[in-house]
């Protein structure tokens, strides 16, 4: 079987007439932990949606497990998706169902396991994310961080080959976040899971990333190992890793100076 789980080639993405990302190339190899980083609103989540065929690209091709997603049948797509775990940014748990029912959903859909085995599996998955107590609760009764962990349990239900996480540790306290990072690393070493994680938490990136992809300004601006990203002299990548505020646009100052040009004096 091919080593490339996800192959995104020259893909442009957008909603309606607005293009969010253009000309992106991204490959994910088996066993790798890739972090997609970049400023808020740069199109990271959009890229993830395209990776599992929730959003059709404007141009370019997406291959998941070697299969081109363009024009694929619903059945085939559904089969491919069963091998991918997707953790949404807001969790996206089904609010009308309990946490346990949510985690059991993919198990019911894709396995013929008897009910009590599924129940055991659900408890195991909830234990894995430290949410045994939330078994019978509904998502609105949980805190934001708990919802995220419950959603992670659901995306792990089928032991996916590829786990895609959209900001798993955003909004979590440092200890829980570190625990989650450790869990992701454990999943990779124990189950040889491949991970694609969107995050902009520097601590997380340092702890988990093998490889970093940085998106900015509607395109992919860096793709390489973490160490190389850290040393990068691309300004946007360097600013990201050194937590620099956005550069004061020089335009602002010069315009002010242009107004002052007649006398040029600035009182102090």
């Amino acid at each position: 079987m091919s080593d490339l789980l996800l192959e995104i080639k020259n893909v442009s993405l957008g909603y309606g007439e607005e293009i969010v990302l253009g000309g992106v190339d991204l490959c994910v190899r088996r066993g790798e932990l890739t972090v997609v980083a970049g400023p808020s609103g740069c199109g990271k989540s959009t890229l993830l949606k395209a990776a599992v065929g929730l959003l059709a690209p404007v141009s370019g091709s997406v291959r998941l497990f070697g299969v081109d997603l363009a024009g694929i049948s619903e059945d085939r797509l559904s089969g491919l998706r069963s091998r991918v775990g997707l953790l949404f940014q807001g969790g996206a748990l089904i609010n009308s169902m309990t946490v346990a029912e949510n985690v059991a959903l993919p198990l019911n859909q894709f396995s013929r396991l008897p009910e009590n085995v599924i129940d055991t599996l659900v408890r195991m998955k909830l234990g894995q994310v430290g949410l045994e107590k939330a078994y019978a609760k509904t998502p609105p009764e949980l805190s934001g961080g708990m919802r995220k962990r419950a959603a992670l349990a659901r995306s792990l239900a089928l032991d996916p080959e590829l786990l895609i996480c959209d900001e798993p540790s955003a909004g979590l306290d440092p200890v829980t976040a570190a625990g989650l990072d450790q869990l992701l690393l454990d999943l990779r070493s124990a189950l040889n899971m491949t991970l694609l994680v969107v995050t902009h938490e520097l601590g997380s990136i340092d702890a988990i990333a093998d490889r970093v992809v940085v998106i900015d300004n509607g395109g992919l601006i860096f793709d390489g190992p973490l160490a190389q990203a850290r040393r990068s002299d691309i300004p946007a990548v360097r600013d990201f890793f050194t937590r620099q505020p956005p550069r004061a646009e020089d335009r602002g100052k010069s315009m002010l100076e242009r107004f002052l040009k007649t006398t040029g004096e600035v009182a102090s």
């Binding site: 997707l86 996206a92 009308s96």
Partner: peptide, 21 residues
Amino acid sequence: AEIATMKVTEEVDALAAMGFS
């Protein structure tokens, strides 16, 4: 209202991503 809420909170996308129609 129910379906719209599920759409807005990405629950509909999540169902699709789990292989449900």
